[in-house]
Design a protein around this nucleic acid. Structure first.
Lengths: 144, 144
DNA sequence: AGTTGACTTGGAGTCGGCTCCAAGTTGTAC
DNA sequence: GTACAACTTGGAGCCGACTCCAAGTCAACT
């Protein structure tokens, strides 16, 4: 039978763009499950683990705190979504947040376009004014 | 003549969703220019300043470090873009980054959609695999 | 036997971005 | 005149997310 590919911590780092330290840190804080060890106690990662790491970097790009990722990552490790209605609505909620975030980013792109096109014929601050509908201080980006 | 509207630090905070402390902090680190003071040394903000704050919150949503915002904010305070070619290309570069970020976010939305639709009929990790073209550790999100 | 290199661990340090605090000033209300 | 509220300042503290380090283990090579 064909041996499934595995990775050392360094290999996983190269594969994912994380650093070795960061991978170990993620394990330390319980974001990644404790990796299997070889007899010499070195970590071994399988393709599946690398995918999880890629998911983390992907989520991280959305500015999501590591702590908030945990439920999603646990879910994708074999859990059944339909049996976790509160996770389901968390995901819906999160999706809405990201869509809102995309809108913000698009505004900035528009803003930059304005600045770039007009070759500098002065300021255009009026765009970039979506702001949040709720204007209460406790910034509600990821309250979970 | 009609007096232009001004804001206290509290007023500006309410208007922008930042906290008073954060506004003062932004001034302290030079992200906002030193605000004009009343004779009693209280800060006074004009509409223009509030717009700048809104721009900051907008940029902040993209995960941009405060330090990296400074050139853009200075620019929008009266500078002429065409006379700063290096700023111009910085903005172009930044625009490209944000567009890339939007693509990443869209992937996550797609990923979440997959999870949500299939009601939990197991994991779909294969999406969310755009990753960055360059796979060197020093995360190049905003090196400026 | 000794050196090298890839790993292990626990813990300390760093950095960005706030957040909180104490002490002081000023302006208005009673 | 004294209490109160709304500010001021400088500086300390906090949290998240790393990042770095020292000391140790283990296998392979010379």
């Amino acid at each position: 039978m064909d041996e499934p590919i595995t990775y050392t911590v360094k290999g996983a780092a190269i594969e994912t763009g994380l650093t070795e330290d960061t991978i170990r840190y993620y394990e330390k804080i319980g974001l990644l499950p404790r990796a299997k060890r070889k007899p010499n106690s070195h970590r071994v990662y399988r393709q599946e683990d690398v995918e999880t790491m890629r998911m983390i970097t992907c989520f991280r790009k959305t500015g999501m705190p590591l702590e908030s990722m945990k439920p999603y990552l646990q879910l994708s490790r074999g859990e059944d979504l339909s049996s976790h209605p509160e996770l389901y609505s968390m995901m819906e909620e999160h999706k809405r947040k990201i869509e809102h975030q995309i809108a913000s980013l698009q505004q900035i792109v528009d803003f930059l376009d304005l600045q770039l096109q007009s070759g500098g014929t002065h300021l255009h601050k009026e765009s970039c004014t979506l702001a949040e509908p709720e204007k209460r201080p406790p910034d509600p980006r990821f309250p979970i």
